[in-house]
Design a protein around this nucleic acid. Structure first.
Ligand SMILES: [Zn+2]
Ligand SMILES: [Zn+2]
Ligand SMILES: [Zn+2]
Ligand SMILES: [Zn+2]
Ligand SMILES: [Zn+2]
Ligand SMILES: [Zn+2]
Length: 452
DNA sequence: GAGTTTGAAACT
DNA sequence: CAGTTTCAAACTC
């Protein structure tokens, strides 16, 4: 949903002050090379027509890190691996895929979240008070000596006037919704009208108004060391961690009970692999007693491995890169399958525009996994599977898509079972040594013929 | 829950 | 406009 034109536009006019010269973020995977590109373009005309102009791509907006990067496994100097941007949401998608579980809509079904202030000294008549700032009366707040009430309408009005004097736009919405941009899928997120002025949060905490409003920092901002921009690895990771935490809370609230077995092994077993699930860490997948989060089946723990890898990378840039490379490979493989599939469809009939569901698009488009776990996605997935305006062929597409996903899943299973890709070991995160390490000897570089 | 950190708002 | 203080929320433990 938050698809901008591949950073080329979003960052061009954005000049956050970078106090130090190190601008490591987002440099890793902004490049997407050759084969995949063509493949994607070929099968994705819709997006292309809209915003993908490679003519003006040559100068890469996302300044590469130049020489400062050091490759841990220096095997890939000569061959810059086809790197697709991978987002944490894609990992979410993978998890859902392998647990035969529909992508969970990122909920947010709490639109009526009434803010309750706890003001003490402002009497709720200053912009410090969120209630006052939003132009509403305090209601059910925990404020002290609140004057932001209907009874005190007079003084309140005066305060409003005073505030307006200081800043005529004080009560305007801070987040410009880019009014002219229509509500189609490619909505460019709004900007903070006045921008932030963060110094120490990297604009990755809710201290930052931009981040809190879920918008990227813009040219209006005067932040330092900003990491709140499209393509930022830190932002990506931050979002992922947020999602994990949200799920955690959700799951915890769902299973208010059992707290009994504290020292009981958080060790979960799979047929092929012993995988240690550290307590707490992975409770989002399974709750203590091997019970599963409501409404889902347990994912294979091989996938937990991938996730773990990704998660552990937060403190290790090399790990992060490695995880992304892994996922990139998976993506590229899926693209192959998807292309085969789409070719078939093309032969059979006409498959120009819409038929592709978000799930499939996610596999085929570089940045598209974003859509998957976005708010309305689960709904969209369902609609595409139930009945779409395509009428007769909808079922066909659904079946095709299912095949794609299944084969993709199989492929992923193979890769993860094998423990390596193209001879490159999948470094597992700091997991327990009990897991048997496949000393990949017979790894044929024939990277997996997809199970097509 | 107490204490700290943070950056917008208010003030000088 | 810049520097400082005030303030309440976000965050940490
Ligand atoms: Zn208040
Ligand atoms: Zn209030
Ligand atoms: Zn109040
Ligand atoms: Zn900020
Ligand atoms: Zn900002
Ligand atoms: Zn910023």
């Amino acid at each position: 949903m938050e698809k901008t034109d591949h950073d080329s536009g979003s960052n061009r006019n954005h000049s956050p002050r970078q106090s130090d010269s190190s601008v490591p973020a987002a440099a890793t995977d902004a490049k997407m090379e050759s084969s995949n590109e063509s493949a994607i373009k070929q099968s994705h005309p819709v997006l292309d027509s809209q915003d993908r102009r490679e003519e003006d791509l040559p100068s890469h907006p996302q300044t590469p890190p130049s020489g400062s990067e050091k490759q841990p496994s220096a095997t890939q100097d000569a061959t810059p691996p086809q790197t697709l941007p991978v987002h944490y949401r894609f990992l979410e998608f993978l998890i859902c895929l392998c647990s035969n579980q529909e992508p969970e809509s990122n909920e947010d079904v709490s639109p009526s979240k009434q803010r309750r202030c706890k003001c003490k000294a402002s009497r709720c008549l200053r912009l410090y008070c969120e209630c006052f700032a939003s132009g509403s009366y305090c209601n059910g707040c925990n404020c002290l000596k609140c004057q932001n009430t209907l009874e005190n309408k007079a003084e309140r009005q005066e305060a409003i006037k005073a505030t307006l004097e200081r800043n005529p736009g004080a009560f305007e919405p801070k987040i410009g919704a880019t009014p002219q941009e229509d509500v189609r899928q490619l909505v460019t997120l709004g900007k903070h009208s006045r921008g932030c002025n963060c110094k120490r949060s990297g604009c990755l905490k809710k201290y930052c108004e931009c981040y809190q409003a879920n918008v990227r920092c813009s040219e209006n901002c005067r932040c330092r060391d900003c990491k709140n921009f499209e393509g930022s690895d830190e932002l990506d990771m931050s979002g992922y961690l947020d999602l994990l935490q949200a799920r955690k809370i959700k799951a915890a609230s769902h299973s208010v009970a059992d707290r009994g077995s504290s020292a009981v092994p958080p060790l979960v077993q799979d047929q092929t692999v012993n995988y240690v699930v550290r307590d707490g860490d992975t409770s989002l997948f399974t709750v203590p007693n091997n019970r599963v989060v409501p409404g889902s089946t347990a994912p294979t723990y091989r996938f937990c491995l991938v996730v773990d890898l990704y998660r552990s990378s937060q403190s290790d840039t090399n790990q992060l890169r490695h995880a992304k490379e892994l996922c990139s490979l998976l993506v590229s493989k899926s693209v192959e399958v998807a292309n085969k599939m789409s070719d078939c469809v093309l032969d059979a009939g006409r498959m120009d525009e819409k038929p592709m569901s978000p799930a499939t698009r996610a596999l085929m488009c570089d940045e598209e996994p974003v859509t998957i776990s976005e708010k309305e996605t689960s709904a969209r997935v369902r609609t595409s599977q139930e009945k779409e305006d395509t009428g007769t062929s909808s079922e066909v597409y659904a079946e095709q898509e299912k095949q794609i996903l299944l084969s993709f899943k199989d492929h992923l299973m193979q890769l993860l079972n094998r423990g390596s890709i193209n001879g490159t070991n999948i470094q597992k995160a700091n997991t327990d040594p009990s897991r048997k390490e496949p000393e990949d000897e017979e790894q044929s570089h024939g990277d997996s013929s997809l199970g097509s």
